[in-house]
Nucleic acid binder design. Structure first.
Lengths: 342, 342
DNA sequence: GAAAATTGCGCAAACCTTTGCATGATTTAA
DNA sequence: TTAAATCATGCAAAGGTTTGCGCAATTTTC
């Protein structure tokens, strides 16, 4: 397998007895190049499978033709789906996608942003890590004029475009649904309140209760319930309560799964003794027994919208750009876990 | 928010009244630069948050410091985990990771490879699409001397490094386990046989039966059973058989889930009437009821090994490189779905 | 104390492309 | 027929780095 030296635009020029500028223009279908020359160049390029050097072109043009994406981790289903949405829009417009994972670590996030700052990307789509509490580390990016779009986990104070779902409404719908199905005492699994998404979900839970004339009982609002294990352990606690909730509106799905598994072991019936709604509509929700009702976030749309917003901004860099916020509507997928038989 | 023009190496040189070569060397800790100068340069660079232009450096050095990864889709848990393994090794060695998804389409795969060919990556780690039946489209890459490592879904005829698990052994272990648990008539959910992984899984199934003196019955080997829906539908068929299998060794998890859901509906008891083992150890396996026994593929190790192999090859480009194949050992995670009570 | 080695820095080429401007040839307009 | 417009191509700069080589100044060696 002999390694061929790569063909450059110069090789083509030399072989065809012309200049690199003509070759470059021919390849770009520049109108001032004769059809004959254009064909000749393209034919030669094809035959010697010429590929333009991305870096040289990018350097000269000042554009990398690449969108950066920064997410906590791609093996979370939600982010994988968002990424898919981004990829769909990006590849249609011939942008590459460069993915970085913060693994929910702020220091990694900071390094990654630094690393991306020059030449690699023309714009960034990001969802912040769970440790991130302000947007200082995004400033260098912004100062250098690299467009930024935040989605899902955002920094509200940062004056950039954002794509979010109406988390408050999502939780509100879930609670309303539980009430309509006869639940009288609805508890809540909350996430860290400094993150916009969890704050709004909790708010939606509270608003829904209030709007339906139900009281807010702090003792059945449980903080930091993001993992299956937490849900599992909490179920024991619920089991021992004198006046346990008959339903839980959770800010995520994993804690629900854990809680139901423990409920099963303890002989507590779901949904009749205690009903559940989750958040995110993880794939496992549908195959779990009982299937888990959950708020669908339309991650693919979220990715698509983010990419569109970013590309719009990238392609209008000269013009003064006003950041926009897109709020997507969630929907509630009702399954067995929230449907009391009584 | 004023957009600052970027700081370049030239700006630093001018400001410090020296030349770009000195600045460049100072930043790289070149031994021939005085400590004083080095400090001065670094201080200025820091203060003006200078970031080297990736493209210019890459162009000059002929290295992109980037590893390409080509997978069918990243929202499949297995690939997301592999990617994580790759990312761990890559980022430790300061490589970027550029991810492309073929969406299991051969034509997309071909285009993506073309697109990656120049300047974007120094090496590629790939798992082929389900449509891919030969490696012709990888040839241009190889001819240009870009190292390639294939993992999981590979092209055996291609003379490149590979990382796979012993799929045959995985299925063998599953069948052996079923036999030891009293299963007498074990069927098989197979995948497309032109893909190495499914071919070997089927082989392992057959070998295990033979080694235990059991006969091979083609009528309970079911082809193309990769999706939940397929499993769901097939359960009806099994239900109607005069002499149905009392166990299934499946080449993937989704069909198992589908089959069990339908079994539940039909009143067929799992595992007592029919036991199941899956393949891939998807996260849902653990929370499903009954929990699904499955072959664990150690995707993270697979990613790590692939990255190591690739980097080794990239960093020894001058030396004649002999492709290597790493075969990882799978393990069987035993859960309820395969443990008959009788 | 002279030759040799080392130190610290600068010059300029190279990596490959894109593109504003110039130029000579051909066609069009008047 | 001549000036003007158009066409097809070429020249050279620019984008930001890295690096081989050269050259003084300084230090080491014997």
């Amino acid at each position: 397998m002999s390694i061929r030296k790569r063909t450059t635009i110069q090789d083509i020029a030399k072989a065809l007895n012309t200049t690199i500028s003509t070759v470059s223009r021919a390849l770009q279908d520049h109108p001032r190049i004769s059809v004959a020359m254009r064909e000749k160049v393209k034919k030669y390029a094809e035959e010697h499978d010429y590929q333009p050097d991305f870096r040289a072109a990018s350097l000269r043009k000042g554009l990398a033709n690449t969108i950066g994406v920064l997410v906590p981790r791609i093996d979370i289903h939600f982010f994988a789906r968002v990424l898919r949405g981004i990829d769909e829009v990006a590849s249609e417009k011939n942008y590459n996608v460069l993915i970085s994972q913060s693994y929910d670590s702020l220091s990694k996030e900071i390094n990654l942003i630094k690393n991306l700052t020059y030449g690699k990307i023309d714009g960034l789509i990001a969802s912040i890590s769970i440790e991130t509490k302000n947007g200082n580390h995004f400033e260098p990016l912004l100062k250098k004029g690299i467009p930024l779009v935040l989605f899902d986990k955002i920094i509200e104070s940062l004056n950039v475009s954002k794509v979010i779902i109406d988390d408050r409404q999502g939780a509100y719908m879930a609670v309303k649904h539980l009430i309509e199905n006869g639940c009288k005492r609805i508890g809540h699994f909350a996430g860290p309140q400094y993150l916009n998404i969890y704050r709004y979900r909790t708010q939606g839970y509270i608003d829904a209760l209030k709007d339906h004339g139900m009281e807010i009982d702090e003792s059945i609002i449980f903080q930091n319930m993001l993992e299956q294990q937490k849900g599992y352990e909490l179920m024991d606690q619920l089991h021992k309560m004198e006046n346990p909730p008959d339903a839980i509106c959770s800010a995520n799905d994993f804690a629900v799964i854990g809680a139901i598994i423990r409920a099963r072991e303890l002989g507590i019936k779901v949904p009749d003794d205690i009903a559940f709604t989750g958040f995110a509509n993880e794939p496992m929700d549908a195959i779990f027994e009982p299937a888990v009702s959950s708020v669908e976030q339309s991650p693919i749309s979220m990715g698509q919208e983010s990419a569109r917003l970013l590309i719009e901004q990238m392609e209008n860099k000269n013009i003064e750009y006003k950041p926009r916020t897109i709020v997507l509507m969630p929907s509630l997928v009702v399954r067995k876990s929230s449907l009391k038989s009584g």
